[in-house]
Amino acid sequence: MKKLLEVKNMHVSIHTDSGVIQAVRGVSFDLYESETLAIVGESGSGKSITNKAIMGLLPVGGRIDEGEVILNGRDITHFSEKEMNMIRGAEVSMIFQDPLTSLNPTMTVGDQITEMLMLHKPEMTAEQRKNRALELLDMVGIPNPAERFGQYPHQFSGGMRQRVMISIALACEPRILIADEPTTALDVTIQAQILELMKKLQKKVNTSIIIITHNLGVVSSMADRVVVMYGGRFVECGDLDEVFYQTKHPYTKGLLDSIPNLQLSDQKLYSIPGTPPDLISPPHGCPFAARCERCMKVCEKYQPSEYEFSQTHRASCWLYDERAKGGALI
């Protein structure tokens, strides 16, 4: 399989009034052709910032301190705003959690799609653009595309807006689609619709998807591979089944155990004690050490190295060091 995107040892910090937030501290992953990669983590894990850094969309005060983002053989971390604009939408597209704030309220939905086409496909005529926009609206399951074309975002419901966002994101057939919590703001039944739509479209247009989410249910229904992040650092990655059924890292395990199982009744739910670390003064060792039931002295002092369990499955945890005998989880 062909590698589309390579993120190497990414470090991102955000300078704020209350101090420097070390949002991402050394995260690496690859994205292959036509796969879905899920990046899982809670708020403050750095999952969103990592992807904003890839797209050059860091918030004010944010900057990449170290690391490379290799897209089609080029390191795009030092690209200018103009160069990034040619990549955004054409090669890599992004959809966000809140479709209302990511659509322009003063432009019709049709204009927002054709604007994207105008920017990246200047060779198209106005009529071709309009036809393409109608085709896209139809593809994302918006009924009466001809009528909806001239309407404004506020005339759409939440689920429909997210469909519009997807149609804009896919307008120029990008190789990569980054979906940042695409269904978090939506109701369960609408979430199911959007997830089905994304799966269907992925087969049709053959893009790779990076889906960023905290919902492990969404992960297990969408992803081929999973990267787990915590406190700005890489925790575990592997194939979907490896991460869910041969879980290595205590954090991943705790996360999976803290979701109630609908099939069982009268279970005792596990909960990870404590609170995520403050990334203004992140812990020296493993960020999860303070909350980990199997924490060792080394975990509090040294950042764990990565241990490999299969070609695809890696975890960053001292329990798998030779010196921690019999430390491995089940």
Binding site: L216, G217, S220, S221
Partner: peptide, 10 residues
């Protein structure tokens, strides 16, 4: 509609 955190079931 609830996605379950269990890939085999999903």
């Amino acid at each position: 509609a609830i996605p379950l955190p269990d890939p085999k079931v999903e």
